[in-house]
Design a protein around this nucleic acid. Sequence first.
DNA 1: GTCCAGTCCA
DNA 2: TGGACTGGAC
Length: 283
Amino acid sequence: MGDVAPSIARDLPWIGVRDPWAVLVSEVMLQQTQAARVIEPWRRFLETLPTVASCANAPRSTVIELWGGLGYNRRAGYLHDAARAITDEFDGRIPKDPLALRRLPGVGHYTANAVASFAFGVRVGVLDTNVGRILARAIANRPLGRAEAQRLADELLGRGDSAAHNQAMLDLGAQFCTGTPRCATCPLASRCAWRTNGGADPARRSAAVSVPQGAFAGSNRQLRGRIVATLREGPARLDVVVRRVAQPPQRVAELLATLVADGLVEHVADAVRLVGDPRELIE
DNA sequence: GTCCAGTCCA
DNA sequence: TGGACTGGAC
């Protein structure tokens, strides 16, 4: 985030100020993806699918294609499902109540509150991993539970512009309160409870704060990469892939199924034509 | 190799 | 409530 804010939809006039659909699309794209990489795909997406209805009526392949190089293609599927759910269950209008928003697929605490705040001005604190760290470090100096952290975030809103406040918190956290904090330049440092009192980092194991990724070696992520690399050389039968990556057929089939479900690589689809739906092999 | 990170599910 | 999933940037 940093120089470009999560609520980019508010500042880009061609799609309409605070258009709830534009905000929802941007917030889903911003899940685990930095803002700078989101802008172009976001613009492309909205040019083709400018409304909830246009997305709900579009074929799945279009939505996944428009996702471009953002990765985490599952989010595209969720967004497509969400557009259909809004059409079917909410009369085509994106709800402004965070609890209702959370019923949409792919919409969790963060996205629900962000859409409520940035699209509708609902006075609710937006809590991502960086804001979670600010609360645990600067305010409480101890790990917080989910409800506690949300209550603190809500209390900090005060009486001013709550969306602007949330934006400031997100930016402050993203720029200074990262995993390894940049206290030397942080404007909150002189008032930070953790800096003042010292001790172990309270953000570890605090609510909403993400944990480090596990080891790469031996992970599914590594194996997925090897499978994709194998298939890039051309379509291959499942038994060939299994031999190449030297892993149990069951495990390879499971990962292949996730690759297919995510619409990841054309060669995977070729492989599926050769060996059938790998999901059937798992049963 | 390490960092960043929200949702889902058990 | 903690772990799995996922993947580009550096």
